[in-house]
Amino acid sequence: MLLQQIAMTVAEGGEHEPAPLWAEPWVFGVVMFALLLVLMFITWSYSNLGNRHTITEEHADPHRQHPNKHDHGQGH
């Protein structure tokens, strides 16, 4: 059905009015920029989570359900 409407519009010359906007076009750009800026600051606020604690070595526990297989046999 939609393809038929598109085909008929193209066959008629494709002249139609664009849909009316509820705000000026620049408003959409400003709102989108502000939204992305807020999301960027939220992301940036989590950038120091890795620096809160000192780094400690993970001990190899052979009794774990899913042991770390990247210790190259050092925990045995």
Rank of each mutant, 00 (worst) to 15 (best):
G29I: 01
L2D: 14
W44K: 13
H76D: 03
E57C: 02
Q5D: 10
G13Y: 06
L36F: 15
Y46D: 10
P25S: 03
S45E: 06
H59G: 04
L36P: 01
G13N: 05
Q4D: 10
A60Q: 02
P18C: 02
V10R: 06
S45D: 12
Q5R: 06
A23P: 00
G29P: 00
H72S: 06
N68V: 02
L2T: 11
M32S: 12
L35T: 14
A60I: 00
A19E: 15
L36C: 15
M1E: 12
Q74K: 14
E58I: 08
S45L: 04
V30W: 10
Q65S: 05
F41R: 06
V10F: 07
H59E: 15
I55R: 06
N51M: 08
V31Q: 06
E15R: 09
H76W: 02
A11G: 02
A23Q: 12
N51D: 14
L2V: 13
V27D: 05
L35S: 14
H16L: 12
H72K: 08
K69A: 08
P67H: 01
N48V: 03
D71V: 02
H76K: 10
A34K: 02
A19C: 04
V10T: 05
Q4P: 00
I55D: 10
Y46W: 12
R52E: 15
R64S: 12
Y46F: 15
V38M: 14
I55E: 10
Q5C: 09
D71A: 06
G73K: 01
G73N: 03
P20C: 01
T43Y: 12
F41W: 11
P67T: 03
T54F: 06
L39A: 15
V30N: 01
A34Q: 03
M32H: 07
G29L: 09
P67R: 06
P62F: 02
F41S: 04
P25E: 08
H72E: 09
G75Q: 02
E15G: 02
T56P: 01
S45W: 13
F28H: 14
N68C: 08
V38T: 14
V31P: 00
W44N: 06
H63T: 14
H63G: 05
Y46K: 09
G14R: 03
T9I: 05
Q5Y: 11
Q65L: 08
T43L: 14
H63L: 12
L49P: 01
Q65M: 03
V30K: 07
K69N: 10
L49N: 11
